[in-house]
Design a protein around this nucleic acid. Structure first.
Lengths: 345, 345
DNA sequence: GTTAGCACTCGCGGATCGAGACTGCCAATA
DNA sequence: TATTGGCAGTCTCGATCCGCGAGTGCTAAC
């Protein structure tokens, strides 16, 4: 099990096993390998190599007289060192383009389309988080009086993201007063983040003016509201899972559905995707969550601008065509960023 | 197959078959019926009656030597005439109460909770539409300048529902001008529906003032935006389907998932639910949609106030415990209405 | 109209079995 | 020493078969 570096031929064999297995779904044996990938070698030679690869933990066999199947470790080695870079086919590019052409010009609409088309072209379940807005600049604030002491705060952030919260005040305040405050805030607030706004307000020192108190409440609520991490995860394409033979076992499907429907745990995973890396792949048991034991995630990020970003990717069985999925996730991520960018002004 | 009115005993037998089958899932035979429900009768007598019920189309048998199973027609007769009214158990009431206690005080949050708890207590997939707002009164309007000629219209309706649209103007308009217009609109608009607003504006006759033009565009877009029917359908509890033996057949599940994920067709069905009826039940092939061939829908409506209402219910296999599901759908609908009501001021 | 009895049908689950696919090992080979 | 052909052994999978049990329809008696 120790990390023996693989010699060239073992690498090629591992690569062939992974490639073949991901498309056929059938454990691959020494004869097929010899016939399809290594005409120069005999099946017996390959058998020896295969036995070694099992010994070092890159492959396993479902039962004594079956072919070999990659382990998580095998997949990991494959995606790290062996995978050929692929580009999305023109057909796929066209599909994506067409999908986005009919998308509405709102952030939510675009993200929904992205989830839809990504699920479609990868034949897996797509995942998309709403953009992280804690560092987004504020564009517009509006205060609306609801019942006597409740105030609805509407926040328009860059990218035309709209956020809303309700706060309760200690005493009733008229809509006129609120409008005046909103106007004032709008003058001061343009192009700042909530944190900046908060610190600027504190610089002014304590001041018992009633209006200031309300303002503090408002700004405070804005900043805490923004601080709480996004837990909304869009997903699409659950029906695709049914086509994969690994999910005829209903329990796996059920575990996965539960994760998708509650969302919180997935949100945690998606938020850990680094913004600087290209595409991140998490394979099988590398996942902390036991429900994802037999699943892989292929994730990357999209961005509206430098500060406002989110995660996008797919989840599917560990046996997936990684090269292709990576290319397509990247494609959709880029297309999404391009569409969202212009909204960010 | 003609509509023979069923005599008392046949009704009782049909009722017993439906009741037993919905809980056991096993075709029910004459002996079980005699033992469990009709001790006074012999199994032979019951066999005769069963044969009649098959002849008139209320029952069917999967194969020659199996028990009987209700047809769609049998279920229909059951829910129309035979079903005992049930009340939700204290345990269930408590579950619902607790679920809503942790719900956020927003319309979306409450509806999501409703979908969640309804799925949980009925062990089926829940469906909830966003409230129909075309007749809702407008509470507040805000206009935000985006890029040069784009304007974001934010509409706060009664119940604190927030709607947003973007329109493009013929020429650039400053945020100050927009704010002035918004203030003006807010004075005029309070407590009116978009239609009322539109007609009032038209009464004033043609007027080439530029500001008026913009206002017309704004109001027009508001009213058309509101007019388009809600197609958003929340759903929850897909994992529950996996527990039902009727969905081991993966094709059915896939058809159903497709309907859920695209949403439009379901939205059409849900919108046809009458606002005056109590609970509406659609059984199997009564559905126009072929994907719902083997499913039943139990639907009702909730309301925020007299004008703002939506649909809520569940979808599950035709073999469901109708009495219980009806009671629980009704319960959640009422609880939802009660929670949303106070927000409607 | 109801019932007991009986022959008959049919699906389901378990047992059995042979074919096929691979492997591991060994001895021969280059 | 690395590679290869040969071979015996292992294990899964699918087909087939069979008997049990459940349930029916029919008939004749009550």
């Amino acid at each position: 099990m120790e990390a023996t570096p693989l010699d060239e031929r073992k690498q090629q064999i591992l690569k062939a096993v992974v490639s073949d297995y991901t498309v056929t779904g059938v454990p691959v044996g020494s004869q097929v390998l010899a016939a399809k990938y290594f005409i120069a070698l005999s099946s017996a030679t390959i058998r020896n190599e295969l036995a070694d690869l099992v010994g070092t933990g890159y492959l396993q066999q479902p039962h004594t007289s079956a072919g070999r199947v990659p382990t998580d470790r095998g997949y990991r080695y494959f995606v790290d060192f062996l995978m050929d870079p692929e580009a999305a086919s023109p057909t796929v590019r066209r599909t994506v383009k067409q999908a986005f052409e009919t998308a509405p010009h709102s952030v939510e609409g675009i993200l929904e389309k992205a989830a839809m088309v990504l699920a479609q072209i990868t034949e897996n379940v797509s995942l998309v988080t709403a953009p992280e807005t804690s560092e987004a600049r504020i564009k517009h604030i509006d205060l609306v009086s609801l019942e006597s002491q409740s105030v609805l705060i509407i926040l328009v952030l860059e990218g035309n993201l709209i956020k809303q919260t309700v706060i309760r005040l200690e005493r009733a305040t008229s809509q006129d007063d609120l409008s005046r405050m909103a106007a004032m805030l709008n003058r001061k607030v343009k192009g700042q983040t909530a944190e900046e706004l908060l610190s600027r307000l504190q610089q002014l020192g304590p001041d018992r003016d009633e209006q200031r108190q309300i303002l503090e409440r408002v700004i405070d609520s804005i900043s805490t509201h923004q601080a709480q991490r996004q837990s909304v995860v869009l997903h699409d394409g659950v029906r695709n899972l049914l086509r994969h033979p690994e999910f005829v076992e209903v329990n796996r499907l059920e575990e996965l559905l539960e994760l998708l429907e509650q969302g919180a745990q997935l949100a945690g995973i998606l938020q850990q995707v680094a913004f600087d890396k290209d595409v991140e792949i998490i394979i099988g048991r590398e996942n902390t969550s036991s429900g994802l034991r037999e699943c892989s995630l292929v994730l990357t990020t999209y961005k509206m601008d430098e500060r406002v970003r989110g995660t996008i990717g797919v989840i599917g069985p560990t046996r997936m065509h990684y090269g292709q999925v990576v290319a397509r996730v990247r494609l959709v991520s880029q297309a999404t960023s391009e569409l969202l960018g212009p909204l960010g002004n």
